[in-house]
Design a protein around this nucleic acid. Structure first.
Lengths: 192, 192
DNA sequence: TGTATTTGATAACAAATGTTATCGTCTGCC
DNA sequence: GGCAGACGATAACATTTGTTATCAAATACA
């Protein structure tokens, strides 16, 4: 599970084992709420198997902002870092196997890691990359039509199309399920 | 001009003066292009007086992503950091007085600053805050109607309403100038 | 296996937003 | 002072997207 990180962080074996020991493994059914709206996020999750979505309630309607799959880490980042109530809900879509670490333990690790220049730069670069990803989402939203955004998803994130129920995809694209159906229907007809 | 930063960065006077010396002052008319589309960003600008917008060309239409005013720093961040061609244009709106620093010089400063733990944390926090700001823009875009976004602007960024020509605001809100006129018109009528 | 629930498609109508065109006002500039 | 270009309002019509309702298919699960 953690081998993917092993290469990035050049640590001693002891340290590595100590860090891994902070993580806890859980298995949860689909539609399990991992973080509720208004709750302060104290756990960071890593997905071994399964699929998670992050959404918030807007006038009674779901609005999905992110999907996560295997090997990705998930939290309500702003809530996690600033200890503020989370505006979003974190919830499994499929039956999932997760590893989580408590914020206190992660903070310890990060304090130690920050003293190592190479790791510090890795961290900073990760932060920048996260910012760039958000910019990309943002630009795509104001730039592209829902149809184009759907085509982008097919191209860039086929996992979402394949594994996520369509009404969540609609909520991610910012349209109704009815309209997403229309979009798909038109695309099929154009192919004739 | 630079006193606003003086407090944040606890440096010796020598260092401070050395750093300030890297900056160059320029005065430019409105509609001056500071960075063209496709160009690699090598200058970071700080605004002493005036107003800048960042936009990109989408099928012949302007799409404005950000406005900047006095005391803010401006660059096509991703292009600046990664040395990739900028997807956006950076352009003055008003007659402006700017200070700019070359990326090479800024990198030198940052390398030195990173060795000081307090300053390193200030930097990391600035990166996080930038991410959170983008999340906020993003969420507002998928959550709120154009009318609501316009009301948010009035509330949260009155400078934009007061100083920026309306067609740029429309392009920032993601609607046509015609529709923004309609929105304003409806708001006036509701007040009766 | 059978039934309830979830998921997705479609139709008919409503509301929001874009497109094109016209006109008036303002502003910078010679 | 007058003119050209920028800016903003409005109207008429087109297109996109939302709303509500209904039905069919897939799926979960007792």
């Amino acid at each position: 599970m953690f081998d993917q990180f092993r290469n990035k962080f050049l640590l001693t074996d002891e340290k590595w084992l100590e860090y891994i020991n902070y993580f806890n493994r859980i298995e949860v059914p689909s539609k399990t709420t991992l973080l509720e709206e208004g709750e302060v996020s104290k756990k960071l999750f890593i997905i071994e198997r399964g699929c998670i979505r992050v959404w918030f309630n807007n006038n009674g309607k779901d609005l999905t902002t992110q999907f996560f799959f295997e090997n990705q880490s998930v939290a309500s980042i702003e809530s996690f870092i600033k200890k503020t109530p989370s505006p979003v809900v974190v919830e499994t879509i499929e039956v999932s196997v997760l590893w989580w670490i408590h914020k206190n333990d992660l903070d310890k690790i990060l304090e130690e890691i920050k003293e190592i220049p190479e790791l510090r730069d890795v961290l900073i670069n990760m932060l920048f990359q996260r910012t760039f990803d958000y910019m990309k989402y943002f630009v795509s939203f104001i730039k592209d039509s829902p149809t184009q955004r759907y085509l982008n998803l097919i191209e860039e994130r086929p996992q979402i199309i394949q594994r996520v129920p369509q009404h969540y995809i609609a909520s991610y694209l910012g349209v109704t399920t009815v309209h997403l159906s229309r979009i798909k229907s038109k695309l099929v007809h154009k192919k004739d």
